[in-house]
Design a binder for these strands. Structure first.
Lengths: 152, 152
DNA sequence: TTGACATAGTTTGCACTGCCAACCAAACTC
DNA sequence: GAGTTTGGTTGGCAGTGCAAACTATGTCAA
């Protein structure tokens, strides 16, 4: 098999570091990791509750509370779909967008010190490699995500 | 400064993918991300409650419940320190160690498909670059973490 | 030695996260 | 139009995590 697992272990270690940064910055703004993701997702989407839940890998009942609290804070809003009167779609408010952008900047700034010690060409290389890994994960997730529907 | 933020964004994206894998595998074994970390940490340490909390960046009161539940499941145990009768140190049980190792293998296996599409030399390169980033993060965290602990 | 203060953990109370099962309402199906 | 599926909410439950209050032990100084 894959001889040694150094790469997998390094991915896990690094991910925990990154999540620690995200958690800290999120909590500075009273946002959980999940809410951070929601805000990020809504920046360029206007999904329905169920779609949002699928994106996040959460149960739809979890979304109700998540959106409800974010709505109470004025970060997102719910709209009724004209096509399907059952459906509720979720979108980000101007305040939510502003917060999402501020948080993104803070995250970038907080991560920069860790990546700055790399040379410019290494930075570019790392970006490419991570994108490659991430893309593989996405493709795989899409495969599984589809399965979660009606059948196998 | 750093011109574009592609690297920081790639780190965040990849980290979310990795955490999704960890979350899924953890939940297969009824373990939260935090419990996964606890078990991992205890594999080669026998810290006190407060040290453990500092490692994880959590409040000590949070540790009480976390350890209590893991102890109830027989994964960890508490021991009284002979030097300081206030102190409680935490260690992993054989069952806990076995579970931790099984989970680690599953995580490696689950991540392998994503990294396998890289060529061997790219894998090695990525490992080196991630370790470099991770090490920088550790140094930085150590600086902050140490302040709460006894000393440097 | 005693009194003041610091440290290690626990307890209590609170809000949030996330799941499941049950439910309602609107769509689709035959 | 009865039966089923789909979209979302509700209620109940366990776990996570924080903050404040508390107990017990340790430390330091007068």
């Amino acid at each position: 098999m894959g001889s040694d697992d150094a790469l997998e272990d390094a991915l896990v270690r690094t991910s925990f570091r990154v999540m620690a940064v995200l958690t800290r910055i999120g909590s500075d703004h009273d946002l959980s990791l999940t809410q951070l993701r929601v805000l990020g997702l809504l920046r360029d989407r206007r999904p329905r509750m169920t779609e949002l839940a699928a994106f996040l890998g959460l149960d739809k009942s979890t979304m109700t509370g998540l959106v409800e609290r974010a709505e109470r804070r004025g970060l997102v809003a719910r709209g009724k779909s004209p096509e399907d009167r059952r459906a509720v779609d979720v979108f980000i408010t101007p305040a939510g967008r502003e917060l999402a952008e501020r948080v993104q900047e803070e995250v970038r700034a907080a991560l920069a010190p860790f990546t700055d010690r790399l040379r410019a060409d290494d930075r570019q290389l790392l970006t490419r490699l991570l994108d490659s890994v991430s893309a593989a994960a996405t493709a795989n997730q899409a495969t599984r995500g589809t399965l979660s529907g009606p059948t196998g």
